[in-house]
Amino acid sequence: MAIVAQSSKYGQFSRTLLAWIVGLLFFFPIFWLVLTSFKTDADAVKPEFLFFFTPTLENYTNMTDNYDYWRFATNSVITSVFATIFALAVGIPCAYSMAFNPTRATKDVLMWMLSTKMLPAAAVLYPMTFLTKSLGLFDTHFMVILVLCLINLPIVIWMLFTYFKEIPKEIIEAGQMDGVNTWGEIKEILIPLAWGGIASTALLCFIFCWNEAYWTVRLTTTDAATLSKLIEGNRAPEGLFFGRLSAVSAAAVGPIIVLGWFCQKQLVQGLSFGAVK
């Protein structure tokens, strides 16, 4: 018995060690990005300054001059926030009626909505470019918001539906007895009850909007270009600008990684379409 205890203690230790090594390895590229962002462009490519160097903030302070960072960041914020708001505005009533007044078609409608998410974006590349250009919507915030809203709508409805389903039907029905109308039900009963679920759905939707990299690159040039477009446009600095490129990249992903830490659980539900519990 003593041997078992000892070996399991040893096992516990090596497992902990291994887990930490794996975790640090996975995090290392992000750490490296942040570390490089504090080096000057010249230092960033010198082996002798790999880990020990004089840190500088110049890459961050010059971000506006070098890349016009704030313009792209503002576009990212505007498009992601409004796309999320619209997706919720359309998604909440839809998920509400699906959860509390399900018909025989509800399941099929939900499945069909999900299937729209599975169409490869590239297949409709030219029609989309053609339509946006002929409607005069190319490179406008409106178009980016619309597209981001639509590509995330299925996931938003899906997640809201799974949250709303957890709410006892009786509570909503009690509201109906009291003569509250539908709008009142949603506003006074549903939203306060499902507040946590709605918030995490919104957070996840925001993250997906922020990271979207197909339509935001393809349907914009300058006016509505987001951070994805900015980074994509500076893809090959040839070692000249590692420092400043790292800074702008770190500024583009940093806030989102932190937000992401708060919605790990919702991520599982949202991305596995509720099939893993």
Binding site: I30, A213, V217, S228, E232, I257, L259, W261, L267
Partner: peptide
């Protein structure tokens, strides 16, 4: 979990 939230371009 962090790498999952890095935008593809970055």
């Amino acid at each position: 979990i962090s790498p999952f939230f890095v935008m593809p371009a970055v």
